[in-house]
């Protein structure tokens, strides 16, 4: 199949960017979306032009590195990561618009690559259980009901890609932050620090410049790992109860 691509090009965070049109030919429908971009980049290289920079790594939907807005939707038309999107989802002759995640808290690095270290700083503010290596007791001394373990796992599957932020009109990071807060609040290991954690992580989220949540649900609709909005409800409960009985972080 042949495709007409419009891709965001921007040399770095300090320069202006623009959409540039490219045509790619003889694309197989078995290719992944990123393999289609590989083909484009090989063509550009042979012509001596600068290839399109995009983030990617595992190409199996788990590392959370790939991050493209395709025809206005983070990771494209299905709830999957960009690397797991295949060209059979597109039609011959289709025009495809490819843009980076757009959010103030994710500054642009080059073309389609953004800096998501704000997510790391949010985790650093409290997204952990404070346990030093070697101080753990036997794993089976802490029974955890299967239902709770499964729920915690549902929240823990977040890959930190940032599609939730890219999807949100407010560029809110509530889904990402709530998934970690919920996972650890549900588990007995996370309970001692739950108040401090909720307060600190929400404070860091705000400091990074992410927007507020207005419950449109765009985040959960686009999440490639199906993280549920109920995490946000749980985070709000955690945060409110922490504030009411505050340990004053």
């Amino acid at each position: 199949m042949n495709l007409n691509l419009h891709i965001w090009r921007q040399p770095n965070g300090q320069s202006a960017g623009r959409m540039v049109e490219y045509n790619v030919k003889d694309i197989s429908e078995e290719m992944s979306f990123l393999e289609m971009l590989d083909v484009l980049n090989e063509d550009l290289l042979r012509k001596g032009e600068d290839p399109v920079a995009f983030d990617h790594d595992c190409r199996e939907g788990i590392c959370g590195t790939c991050s493209l807005v395709i025809n206005g939707r983070p990771h494209g038309p299905y709830t999957t990561t960009t690397c797991q999107l295949h060209m059979r989802s597109f039609k011959d002759g289709e025009t495809v618009y490819i843009e980076p995640w757009r959010a103030k808290a994710f500054p642009l690095v080059k073309d389609l690559v953004v800096n998501r270290s704000a997510f790391d700083r949010i985790i650093q503010s409290g997204g952990y259980v404070s346990v030093n290596t070697g101080s753990a007791r036997d794993a089976n001394e802490t029974p955890i009901g299967k239902e709770i373990a499964d729920e915690a796992m549902n929240s823990a599957t977040c890959i930190g890609c940032g599609a939730c932020v890219a999807a949100c009109k407010n560029a809110s990071a509530m889904l990402f932050v709530s998934a970690k807060i919920s996972q650890l609040a549900m588990l007995p290991q996370g309970k001692p620090e739950r108040k401090r954690r909720a307060e600190a992580m929400v404070a860091q989220m705000d400091a990074e410049g992410f927007g507020a949540c207005t419950n449109t649900g765009a985040c959960a609709a686009e999440c490639p790992k199906s993280i549920s909005m109920s995490n946000i409800a749980m985070m709000n409960r955690e945060y409110t109860s922490a504030k009411l009985t505050s340990d004053a972080v």
Binding site: Y128, V129, V131, T133, G134, S135, A136, R137, D138, A139, T142, P143, I144, G145, K146, A149, D150, A152, M153, A156, Q183, L184, L187, Q189, G190
Partner: peptide, 16 residues
């Protein structure tokens, strides 16, 4: 033991 203490949600039986 270490991973469970960190909150790694390993698969569990109904008995916990």
């Amino acid at each position: 033991d270490q991973c469970v203490a960190q909150g790694v949600p390993f698969a569990r039986e109904y008995g916990g």
